[in-house]
Design a protein around this nucleic acid. Sequence first.
DNA 1: GCCTGTTGGTTGAAGTCTCAACCAAGTGAA
DNA 2: TTCACTTGGTTGAGACTTCAACCAACAGGC
Lengths: 158, 158
Amino acid sequence: MADTEVRWLSEEEQKAWRTFLEFQRVLQEALQSQLQRDAGIPHTYYEILVRLSEAPGRRMRMTQLSEQTLQSKSALSHACARLEERGWIRRVECSDDRRGLLAELTDEGFRALECMAPGHVTNVRESLFDALTDEQVHQLRQISEAVVRRLGGQTCDG
Amino acid sequence: MADTEVRWLSEEEQKAWRTFLEFQRVLQEALQSQLQRDAGIPHTYYEILVRLSEAPGRRMRMTQLSEQTLQSKSALSHACARLEERGWIRRVECSDDRRGLLAELTDEGFRALECMAPGHVTNVRESLFDALTDEQVHQLRQISEAVVRRLGGQTCDG
DNA sequence: GCCTGTTGGTTGAAGTCTCAACCAAGTGAA
DNA sequence: TTCACTTGGTTGAGACTTCAACCAACAGGC
């Protein structure tokens, strides 16, 4: 950033960029509002529940969970406090590290997730996948991986 | 949503989806943190300044601005209040509609934008465009337009 | 043992967005 | 004129995220 020369965006890049921004916004909005309306939680909370439901014993260390959901420890901590209030998760002490905590999905939380998942998945499909060809889905994944790689994260492969 | 059958995501779709989510998050994070650090404003505020700088007379009706920046009237109103506190914009009464207001970029706001634009554009280029081939940029635009079309917005063409 | 640094996680304040309520002004009909 | 409806925009409360400060527990060196 010490450059004195800025490589401005070309007309085409400009348009691609603004269209992409709009893409992000409308999609986020579609996901957020559906989840908020039907389940009363933001999308970030939904991801927490999903990751926990997939973990062995439906429990996971807070730090690991924060890495998987791409949330800061602070954000995760606040989120878990809310989810705990609802009885959807529970925080359990960790036996091998007395500093640590395990977030655990409760049965009630699991049932809640089962209830909200169909609506959310349907929404993802209708909002995104149904708008794209198989080829475009593949392209989008390549693009996503390229950017994630560049920005230093790691792709979420199983 | 009255369906009893949910079309769940395939393994491939699942991965594409999660990678895309990660893409969005890391990119947003890169943009947000750079702007916050260097200019002290969120990306949404930056877009307000940009749109105003491009408008004739550097002024625009609030509603039109909220449509262009894809923000709710409420969010825009709060944002403009903050920007006005900094002296970067000013709200002016509208002559042809006494309910209306024009948001106007001040000279100071314009200078501030000139200062922050290079860093932001450089960041957009390095975070996104430099990671993609020209072909991928084109693909991303097609994808974005398809989704925006589907979700009922309109693409931002000049 | 002690001392320092790092890691795991929480907390509170500040900032932003959403939602619903609200007001003022324009519009149209009776 | 009056009444009802819509549009333009603001406001305050509540919810989420970020940031910095913080505490407790681990780890390593002396």
